[in-house]
Amino acid sequence: MANHRKPKLAVWKFSSCDGCQLSLLDCEDELLSVVGAVDIANFPEASRAVMKGPYDISLVEGSITTPHEAERIHQVRRQSKLLITIGACATAGGIQALKNFKDVKDFISAVYASPEYIETLAKSTPIADHVFVDYELRGCPINKYQLVEVLNAFLNGRKPNTPAYSVCMECKRRGTVCVMVAQGIACMGPVVHAGCGAICPSYHRGCYGCFGPKETPNTGSLSEWWKQLGISENDIVRGFRGFNAYADAFRKESELHEV
C-alpha cells in the first residue's frame, strides 16, 4: 500500500555558525516547494513547532566539541532513518578544529576569564567520528543548490549528483583562466572537492579549500608547486589548516610542513 505521509525532515545544530542551515532558508526560489514536499518536524532556527521522531531525514550541522554534544548526536542518530551531515564543521570538524593542533587549556584561558565555567572537549571532531553517517555534503558553507539536489535525490530514492572531482574541473567548465599558472597565485583548487562552482578563481583569488579534500588528492605535489611560487613552509601549513584542517589528507600534509 502506498503511504502518502510526507517524509519528516529535521535539522540539528552542533558547534557551528548556522550558515549551512541558513542555506535552506536562502533557497528563496525553492523554499516553498521544499517545505511542500516534506514535513518540517524539527528546525528550531525557523520554527517553534516540534514534532516527535523518528525522522525520515536528519540534516546535521556542526561538529562535536562538548561532552553533551557527543551524547546528543547518538540520540539524533537513533531517531533518524537517514542522517546527512551538512558543511565543513559536520564533515571535518570545521575551523574550530584548529584547536586540535594546540593545547585546549591555552585556548580556553585566551578567551574566557573564568575557564572553570567552560565545558569543552580537547578536539573538535566530525559527526562520522561518532555515529554512522549516510551522506556527507561538503562546504563552508554548503552550496544551497547541492542541498536541494541531495534532498531531491533522497526523497526520490536516487543517488545525489555531487561530484568528488577537483575545483579545477569547475574552473575549466566556467572558462576561468588558471590563476596559479597565469598569475602565480597560490591556489588549493587541484586538491579541493568541487561544489562551490569555483568562485574564488573567478574573483581573481586562489581557492582556499572550503569544500575539503577531493577524492585521492595529491597534496604533496601541490605543496611542491606552492614552494616553487615562493610560498613558505609556514604558509603551506596555514593553507592546509583552514576550514577543513582536520580532514585527513589536509591534516597529514600540514603536519609534514610544520617546523
Partner: peptide, 30 residues
C-alpha cells in the same frame, strides 16, 4: 552555544586570514 574559541584560533594566523576566519563566526552576518 558551545564555545568555538575564535580569538584563540586567530593567534598566529596572517592578518589577511582575519576576514575569512571571523566571517565563520556567523552565517547570518558574515
Amino acid at each position: 552555544e558551545p564555545p568555538r574559541f575564535f580569538e584563540a584560533l586567530l593567534r598566529g594566523r596572517k592578518f589577511s586570514d582575519a576576514p575569512d576566519i571571523t566571517s565563520r563566526i556567523c552565517g547570518i552576518c558574515p
